[in-house]
Design a protein around this nucleic acid. Structure first.
Lengths: 205, 205
DNA sequence: ACCTGAACACCGTTCAAGT
DNA sequence: ACCTGAACACCGTTCAAGT
């Protein structure tokens, strides 16, 4: 009945969020290897068993971290879209750039998001929804373009191909496996734009 | 001086290879999670410290496994190329198909190969060379086509874009993150072919 | 309702010691 | 030259117990 409990607060304050924040910090600082449950708990100032009040197991913590990542990525992609000129190639470039630079700036987080701690996906509805929002931004950009008559053909097929290309570029760059392209913006932007141009050529009606 | 020691054999027989074989079996059977050094040693019938005679640490064992993977992948891609009609689209499809179906048939192995236990790459010359052979097959297919006048533009840029797309498709399929495309051959082949056609359209001189 | 401490079954790695 | 056993410093997870 009292209003001082509007957000769920525990002894600690809000341990669930404190744990997530600690985990995100560890991910930035030490990469995926640094992300163990005991270290996260230590960082949040609680015993190593406290997290089990808030997450069923380590997997559940990772899923929550991944969900946060997809929400942030969707934000970046939405921002990129609104501040881009209303030209198809530029819109796709903005989306691709947001996608890939998110990955390059948060490597461990991106790896975690796109690591199928797999079937978790089907069960974790919130995680699934967050991920879906990201790739639907790309789908709707293509959908608009098709409505305008700028591109023809099978929308879903186009979208899958383009997304594959953006995702592959991101992963190869993150893992340092794209030969002769360092993570510097110039080479990355060139790769994104070239890829989009190649594919748009095939999508013209 | 004697000839009975042409291949290095130990008490065990050839523990190094026995360990690699055990690791590959575990990878198939249990995925990356099953690949711990003690389990590998147990499977090979030696104590859990014996592997350290042959691999500096777990990382080194993983790198050797990755190298085997790239060698096998290069084989599959080479075979695909030789048994494909001498038409550019078909040659690229054969390469993409070999690449992606390797990944789908050996998910844990592929994940490991393309997980940058990263800077290891720069140091491990054999691993680096094995990986390079794979993506040079794609580069030379495009190079031939350009020599024939079938495609124009910047060869390296084309190659990076196409490889990104093939890689992204493989990863998304492996991780079950390509919505509405199951791992069944039909949907996968359609995706590969569509992607190649889109890009080839942009490469025409 | 939320958290702790001891405990269990594991890891990777090191190091003296065995043959 | 090749392998073993005990040991160390860790994990994730469970469970009785505390407030």
């Amino acid at each position: 009945m009292e209003s001082h409990e509007k957000t769920s607060r525990y002894h600690h304050g809000d341990l669930r969020n404190a744990l997530l924040a600690a985990a995100l910090t560890l991910l930035e600082e030490e990469g995926a290897a640094g992300l163990d449950l005991r270290k996260v708990a230590r960082r949040a100032g609680v015993s190593h068993t406290a997290p089990y009040r808030h997450f069923a197991d380590k997997h559940a913590l990772l899923a929550a971290i991944a969900e946060i990542g997809f929400n942030r990525l969707a934000e970046r992609m939405t921002e990129a879209l609104t501040s881009s000129p209303p030209v198809l190639e530029e819109r796709l470039f903005a989306l691709g750039h947001a996608y890939i630079s998110f990955g390059l700036h948060h490597r461990a987080h991106a790896r975690l998001m796109f690591s199928s701690f797999g079937m978790a996906r089907a069960e974790d509805i919130a995680l699934h929804a967050a991920a879906k929002r990201c790739f639907e931004l790309l789908a709707s950009a293509l959908g608009d373009a098709q409505a305008n008559g700028e591109i023809g053909g099978a929308l879903q097929a186009h979208w899958r191909s383009l997304w594959s290309a953006m995702h592959g570029a991101m992963i190869l760059l993150i893992e340092d496996q794209m030969p002769y392209v360092t993570a510097e913006a110039d080479g990355v932007d060139t790769l994104i734009r070239h890829t989009i141009r190649l594919m748009l050529a095939g999508m013209r009606p």
